[in-house]
Computed example of a mutant assay.
Amino acid sequence: MSDNDYLQDLLKSQELEEGCDELDALDTERDKVDDLLKEAFPTSNPNFTHGGSRAKGTMIREDYDLDEVCYFDHDDTGPGDTLEEIYESVAAVLEENYMVRRKRSALRLKTKSGKDLRIDVVPGRYTSDEGTDVFLHQNEGDKERLKTNLEVQIAHVRDSGCTDVIQLTKLWRTRNAIGIKTFPLELLVIEVLDGNNGGNLQVRFERVLNEFADNIDDLYIEDPANPTGNNLSHALTDELRQTLADVARDTIDAAAEHGWEHIFGKLEMKATTLPKVAALGAAAAAVGGAAPPWASEDK
C-alpha cells in the first residue's frame, strides 16, 4: 500500500456517517438543549442551527463536537439588553441541567457528573432584520463583541476544496496535542493551499506541514465573514506558531524515514480513540521502531 493510499484509508476510518451512534447522541442532546432554551425564552423564538466541523464537512471521529448556535432577533431584549446579558442568561438556563464552562464566545456542556457532551452552545444576536450577520459576546480580548456570519464561515471551509487535508491536519493536531483551535487551523490549511491545491492527499498534506515547518511566521489568517473587523492574533501566538513549526518538522522527517503508517499507526488500531501517547506508541510498535521524538506528555 502506498503512503497516499494509507492516508486515504486513514481518513475513511475517521468518518462519522449520519445516523451513527455518536451523531445520534449529539442530536438527542442538542434537541434537549434547544427545548430548554425555547421554554426559557418563550417570547423570543431563538433561531438554532448547526455550525462547526459537521456543517463544514471536516469532522473526524477522534476529535469531534457540535456547535449549536442560538441567535436572537436584533431587537429582542427578552434574554437580555446586552450581549453579555444574553450570554449569561443562556448560561444560567443551561446550568440548571448541565455543568457549563464559559469559553471565549461559547458555552461548553458537561453532564452534572462531569462527562463532556461534546456540545458548544454559541449565543448571539442578529445585527439587523436581515438575519445574517450576528454579534457575539467575547469573554476575552480587547473587544467585548465580535461581528461575524456563520454561514459565510461554513461556506468558506466547506467549498475550499481542502476538507480532506483539513481533516488529516486536525487528526495530526489532535494526536500531537497541539493547542490550536479548529477554525484557525482550517484557515491555515486553506491559506497554504490557496495558491497550489494540486496533487494527491499525501502531496497536499505534506505541502501544508512543510509550510508550517518553514514559513509559519509568514502565514496570516482572517475571518472570512469580517476580514478587517476580527483580530485572530489570539489564535496564533508566537509560542503556538513555534510549536506548529517544530512538530511539523519532526513529523515530516519521521514520515520521510519510516512512512506515514509510522506516524498514525495501523488502521485497525483506530477503531476507537486512543490517548495521544498510546496512539503514537502503537504506531511506533507497528513498524518495529522507537517512539517518535514528540511522543511525550511534555509536548
Score class of each variant (00 low, 15 high):
Ala55Ile: 01
Ala25Trp: 00
Ser44Pro: 11
Leu23Tyr: 13
Arg108His: 12
Thr111Pro: 01
Ala106Ser: 14
Asn47His: 14
Glu15Gln: 15
Tyr126Asp: 02
Glu22Ala: 05
Arg108Ile: 02
Asp133His: 12
Glu15Lys: 15
Asp21Lys: 09
Pro46Val: 04
Glu68Leu: 15
Asn47Leu: 14
Ser128Asn: 09
Arg61Leu: 07
Glu68Tyr: 07
Glu68Val: 14
Asp21Arg: 10
Glu95Asp: 06
Asp73Arg: 13
Phe41Val: 05
Arg30Val: 13
Thr111Leu: 01
Met59Glu: 15
Thr43Asp: 09
Gly52Ile: 10
Pro79Ala: 08
Val100Ile: 11
Leu83Ser: 08
Arg102Leu: 06
Lys56Pro: 01
Ser113Asp: 03
Arg30His: 05
Gly19Ile: 10
Arg101Thr: 09
Gly80Gln: 05
Glu22Lys: 02
Leu37Glu: 06
Arg125Tyr: 12
Ile60Tyr: 04
Arg54Phe: 14
Leu37Cys: 04
Thr28Met: 13
Tyr64Ile: 00
Arg30Glu: 13
Lys38Ser: 10
Leu23Ser: 11
Gly19Tyr: 11
Ala55Leu: 12
Gly52Asn: 11
Tyr71His: 06
Asp81His: 06
Thr58Arg: 11
Tyr98Thr: 06
Arg30Cys: 15
Glu68Phe: 06
Gly57Asp: 12
Glu18Ala: 14
Glu29Arg: 09
Asn47Arg: 10
Leu109Thr: 04
Tyr71Met: 10
Ser53Cys: 13
Ser44Cys: 08
Tyr126Trp: 06
Lys56Asn: 04
Leu26His: 02
Asp24Thr: 12
Ala40Gly: 00
Lys56Thr: 07
Glu62Met: 14
Asp81Gln: 11
Ser128Gln: 08
Glu39Val: 03
Glu29Lys: 07
Cys20Lys: 05
Glu17Arg: 15
Val90His: 02
Leu16Met: 15
Asp76Asn: 15
Tyr64Leu: 00
Ala55Lys: 09
Asn45Ser: 13
Glu85Asn: 07
Gly19Glu: 08
Asp34Cys: 14
Tyr98Asp: 07
Val121Tyr: 03
Ala92Ile: 02
Glu15Ala: 15
Tyr126Lys: 02
Ala91Leu: 05
Arg108Glu: 11
Asp31Met: 12
Thr82Arg: 09
Phe72Asp: 15
Thr58Cys: 07
Glu130Phe: 12
Pro46Arg: 05
Glu17Cys: 08
Val33Leu: 03
Asp24Trp: 04
Glu15Pro: 04
Leu36Gly: 02
Lys115Phe: 03
Glu17Asp: 14
Thr132Ile: 12
Val121His: 03
Arg125Asn: 14
Gly51Val: 14
Thr82Ser: 15
Ala106Gln: 10
Tyr64Val: 01
Met99Val: 13
Asp31His: 07
Thr77Phe: 14
Val122Trp: 13
Val93Ser: 00
Phe48Glu: 10
